[in-house]
Simulated scan of single mutants.
Amino acid sequence: MMKILVCDDDEALVSMVRFKLSRENFGEVFKAADGREAKRLLDENTFDLIISDIHMPFHSGLEIVTHVRQVLKKNTPIIILSAEGLEETVLQAFDMGANDFITKPFSPAELAIRVKRLLNL
């Protein structure tokens, strides 16, 4: 069974993402409400996909990408979510190793399609 980590401090968004991914049978969805919790879960578990907000308490989504790529040395697919679609932020996320970037608000269907693509389903 696949394991997906969703990192976001917006409880409503996490619930929506969790509901959509569960409905699509993508596997078990774990949540981290902030960057510190995300790092702890990443250090203790192996995930098939990470979905992370860019702005979170303690550690940003970009710091999560760096932690996964440079500290943990993992190629886990990462989708970054952000309310700001600034080109500089998008390019920085990709440069650091993110696989995809979705600007909020987004449709659950769009997220599902991007997850399928990254997981090769």
Rank of each mutant, 00 (worst) to 15 (best):
M1Y: 05
M1P: 12
M2T: 15
M2L: 15
M2F: 14
K3C: 04
K3F: 01
L5M: 09
L5W: 04
V6T: 07
V6H: 01
V6Q: 10
V6F: 09
D9C: 15
D9A: 08
D9M: 15
E11Y: 08
E11S: 09
A12C: 06
V14N: 04
V14R: 01
F19C: 10
K20T: 03
R23F: 08
R23V: 08
E24H: 02
E24S: 15
E24K: 06
N25Q: 07
F26I: 05
G27L: 12
E28R: 13
K31H: 13
A32Q: 09
D34R: 02
R36A: 14
R40S: 13
L41I: 12
L41Y: 03
L41F: 05
L42K: 04
N45G: 10
N45Y: 05
T46C: 04
F47G: 03
S52D: 04
D53Y: 06
D53A: 08
I54R: 11
H55A: 14
H55F: 13
M56E: 11
P57G: 13
F58R: 14
F58W: 00
F58I: 14
H59Q: 11
H59V: 00
S60R: 00
E63L: 07
I64F: 10
I64D: 03
I64L: 14
T66V: 15
V68E: 05
R69S: 09
Q70P: 15
Q70N: 14
L72V: 10
K73I: 03
K74A: 06
N75V: 00
N75Y: 08
T76Q: 06
P77K: 02
I78F: 12
I79Y: 04
L81D: 02
S82E: 10
A83M: 10
E84L: 04
E84K: 12
G85E: 12
G85H: 12
L86M: 13
E88D: 15
E88W: 01
T89P: 15
V90Q: 13
A93N: 01
F94W: 05
F94P: 09
F94I: 07
F94D: 15
D95G: 13
A98P: 10
I102A: 05
K104A: 03
K104Q: 04
F106C: 14
F106N: 06
F106S: 08
S107R: 02
P108Y: 02
A109W: 10
R114Q: 09
V115P: 09
V115A: 10
K116D: 04
L118M: 13
L118T: 02
L119I: 05
L121V: 15
